[in-house]
Design a protein around this nucleic acid. Structure first.
Length: 277
DNA sequence: CACCACCCCTGGACGC
DNA sequence: TGCGTCCAGGGGTGGT
């Protein structure tokens, strides 16, 4: 499980990549594995364009050209986007290489290929085809909007929070960390979470993600940002990867379950499952 | 329609 | 040492 990039890691990649590539011209884009790239004809990966911006929605990134053309990149499980100097040794599983004017390159590397690259002739098409189906970004969603979404489903709270159509950006790590901090059991029915609890949950989520971004994200194995730097937020994890170890709040051994088809770690004492609400 | 199981894929951990 | 097996999981799909 190399990277697992969720919102904080993707945001850190965005920031480091942005300062490296905005204002730079793409001399050419080379595709090494065509099945990783979608909707691109020759020249559709920003060839000849100057990079105007690097945007993010949830866990997805977009390189935007000065003509509005754009390339959406999803890192999936194991994807990396790296800015390197010419001549740097190219890792295995590098599927797309952007060569920049004045030197330097950007690699898209993804061993597991759960990620991918999508070309659009304009950001309008990116939104229409990919980003509009996402819920609000986890850093921006309001309690009212999240509560309304949660009211509409009987799924487990964890399943709903992992659903990118409800809120965009959370993955397994940060959902478990959030639910621990909010003292909510992952299997709580989403529709049973009270309005006040969602009112506390949303600012808590924003604070958690902001701290993770400030720490450069979580590096479990080999997640790195666009400059190759690892993150440090894994040192602040309370539950993820700590099954069987004592809860940092109460000392009770943390439990591991499968919820929403994902390994889920929580504290049986701090996060009791309340039936009905 | 809502929800869930299953699948995609590779590499690291672990057991023998 | 080396090989086999299991597991990690975001998101799409097909089945219930």
């Amino acid at each position: 499980m190399p990277a697992m990039p969720e919102l904080p890691e993707v945001e850190q990649v965005r920031r480091t990549l942005r300062s490296a590539v905005v204002g730079r011209r793409v001399v050419r884009a080379s595709v090494r594995r065509a099945d990783v790239v979608h909707g691109a004809g020759p020249g559709d990966l920003l060839d000849g364009r100057t990079v105007a911006d690097v945007q993010r929605r949830g866990k997805q990134l977009a390189l935007v050209g000065d003509d509005g053309r754009c390339v959406c990149i999803h890192l999936g499980m194991s994807g990396q986007l790296r800015h390197v100097t010419n001549g740097a040794a190219e890792p295995r599983h590098t599927h797309v290489i952007w060569t920049l004017g004045g030197g330097g390159r950007v690699w898209f590397t993804d061993p597991r290929r759960f990620g991918g690259v999508w070309a659009f002739e304009h950001t309008n098409a990116l939104h229409r085809e990919r980003w509009d189906v996402l819920g609000p970004d986890a850093m921006r969603i309001t309690p009212a909007v999240l509560w309304r979404s949660l009211q509409r489903t009987r799924r487990a709270l964890k399943a709903a929070l992992l659903d990118q159509g409800v809120v965009a950006g959370l993955g397994n790590i940060y959902v478990d960390e959030l639910l621990f901090r909010a003292r909510l059991h992952p299997l709580t029915a989403a529709c049973a979470v009270e309005r006040d609890a969602v009112g506390r949950l949303v600012p808590m989520m924003r604070r958690l993600l902001a701290r993770a971004i400030a720490a450069g994200g979580s590096t479990l194995r080999d997640y790195v940002d666009a400059t190759g730097e690892a993150g440090g937020f894994q040192r602040q994890h309370r539950v993820y990867g700590r099954s069987g170890q004592p809860c940092r709040r109460c000392g009770e051994p943390l439990e591991s379950h499968v919820a929403a088809g994902r390994t889920t770690v929580c504290c049986p004492a701090c996060q009791p499952l309340k039936l009905s609400g």
